[in-house]
Design a protein around this nucleic acid. Structure first.
Lengths: 344, 344
DNA sequence: TGGATTCAAACAATCGTTTGCGTTAAAATT
DNA sequence: AATTTTAACGCAAACGATTGTTTGAATCCA
């Protein structure tokens, strides 16, 4: 009843040839005549033969798949990264094994172990929020498993990576606020132990100092993770006596929370307070006022991370010592929430 | 220099036991004493042993991974589906191999072949726009590879599936418009050869007839795929003499296009024209006016698709004849774009 | 004609695990 | 004391493909 799947043994038997001939014929090896290649392909199709990559991978010692571990999967940024990665790895013949750390260190470690067990050709990774130790990464590096990190990278580790120029673009954003006449600029940031937020904070501080703006520690709000937290902090901040006149946010979601609170408090944007977000989410140009934000080109980041990975995999004499870092240049997209000129 | 990876043979040798003992010890087999299990685990850790699932899979004839093929990956809906799927398959010990058909029939077929070659335990699939033939699906069904479809399913094929009650909720949406006093209701739909859009169209027609509303063929706009197309068609429609007073859209993106055009034409929403979208995208509650939409619970759909898959995989005497269909109940979320009462 | 060369295909080992069956020694049963 | 049972582990054959090395036949050149 249940026919077993046909293997190359079956097609070999049917043709009275050896399995090696079938294998080589199907792989287009040059030492097989055109005539037999044709016969083999024909019979293989007749028998509905489907190659068994598991067996092939075991023999070859190489698997045609690449692992991807992300902190989240259902965000605009991350899903576009995956899209970019897939657009490169698929044409190259690789499967993509995706797992989501869910911002959880333990799951990140477990996922790495699972990918190792699956013998993936390499791992593309963006760190979870909670990850502070990197032994799990050193481990795969020491085993010569290609590793490419993107966005949230581990600075102290010497690995190939794709990053944004977070610091520089943040400086630009602050300079833009300054040019619009804002002088009392606050920052709402996600946890700064994470590479990207650390750099955004760095840019903020650099710009303030180079522009000669006073730094007010009450205006530096860290550890904001959700819209609700942003709303809460904004409410406190803008009810205080010493109010800022602009807010730089490290994500659009945070900026959204700030905007909602400002509206609730009856504060005009951008006349009274300017707001800038980060990552140019879909909604940024749709809300009122439209939100000035920073486009990170997530798809490009994915594409480059994947290309880097393929380079490493293909490079026989890849040295663990030398590492590339690809910088994707973000772009400041000026919209109404920071554009005082428009509204005067 | 380059130490080879340690295998079960290495730990067996170091302990002077057989590989079978090591294998059984690591897998917690009952016929191995606690004492040796401990020793084996200890040495395995010392040698930094990592199991080779490729070899194990070959031997077992079973692979611990599930394939997922989606028409797109970077949409709110789809990325939330993946999120739901992953949340079920990961704890169950399965890897997720994801590929994106990109709405392309050929890539869908190729992806299926690739997943077959990878010997995945099963395939979770949502059809591409272009897919009209289903031979590639019949093929994997006939080979007893578990198949679960969701959202965009192949009706004619008898497979397990997870779907929304698109028809019913569309009827409700139209009834809601009717209750709000709208009588001349148009529909902007994506191609209706696709299961979900077909059902939404069906619901639209059913509701119109049961409510005794006149059906105007000029108000049935099909094949809308992008925001731009929606804008274009809306412009034509609302400049005509015979205008509708409400538009039901089969996606929020389409609704957004319609709203933008209506605003451009100076038409009041919802006073003059009501608008309803579909799928409750992030931006729906953020735009002006807030958009009435239909929540599809994509994460739930993913969770259920994955659970269904695990059921099938685990079911030894799974019959190809009997199939489950899980219905996820969508919800109409009424917001300003259709709510005349609010604004009177 | 004989030897070298080339071409096409076969042989057989191998990748790292799993697992049915067999073995051994100790414990339990009669 | 003889026998059966049990616990704990070893043996060796798979799983399905790849690939270095041989082999046999056909072709070539002198």
């Amino acid at each position: 009843m249940e026919k077993k799947k046909n293997t190359i043994v079956d097609v070999a038997r049917k043709l009275n040839v050896s399995t090696s001939t079938v294998s080589r014929a199907l792989n287009g090896h040059h030492s097989i005549s055109e005539r037999t290649k044709l016969k083999v392909r024909k019979v293989a199709a007749e028998l509905n033969y489907s190659p068994n990559n598991v067996a092939a991978s075991l023999r070859r010692g190489k698997v045609n798949s690449i692992g991807v571990i992300l902190p989240r999967i259902n965000s605009t940024f991350m899903s576009n990264c995956i899209f970019g990665i897939e657009s490169v790895t698929y044409p190259a013949g690789y499967n993509l094994i995706i797992s989501c750390s869910n911002e959880d260190y333990k799951k990140e470690v477990q996922s790495i172990a699972a990918l190792k067990a699956s013998q993936v050709s390499g791992i593309i990774l963006s760190l979870s929020n909670e990850t502070k130790k990197t032994a799990h990464l050193s481990n795969i590096i020491s085993q010569n498993i290609p590793l490419v990190m993107f966005d949230r990278i581990a600075e102290l580790l010497n690995v190939d990576s794709v990053v944004n120029d977070d610091t520089k673009i943040t400086v630009q954003a602050i300079e833009h606020l300054h040019a619009m006449g804002f002088r009392k600029i606050a920052i709402f940031s996600s946890p700064t132990h994470i590479y990207v937020y650390k750099n955004r904070m760095k840019g903020y501080l650099e710009a303030l100092s180079s522009l000669g703006l006073t730094l007010n520690h009450n205006w530096i709000i860290e550890n904001i993770q959700t819209k609700e937290q942003a709303q809460h902090s904004a409410e406190i901040l803008f009810k205080a006596k010493d109010k800022p006149d602009a807010v730089f946010c490290t994500s659009d979601t945070i900026a959204l929370g700030v905007i909602q609170t400002l509206k609730k408090l009856g504060i005009q944007i951008p006349q009274e307070v300017g707001v800038i977000g980060y990552s140019n989410d879909t909604f940024s140009e749709l809300i009122q006022p439209t939100l000035t934000s920073i486009e990170q080109y997530p798809q490009e980041m994915g594409v480059n991370a994947a290309k880097l990975m393929l380079d490493i995999i293909g490079d026989k004499n890849w040295s663990m010592q030398v590492h590339k870092q690809i910088h994707i240049k973000p772009r400041l997209i000026i919209r109404d929430s920071s554009n005082r000129l428009l509204t005067e």
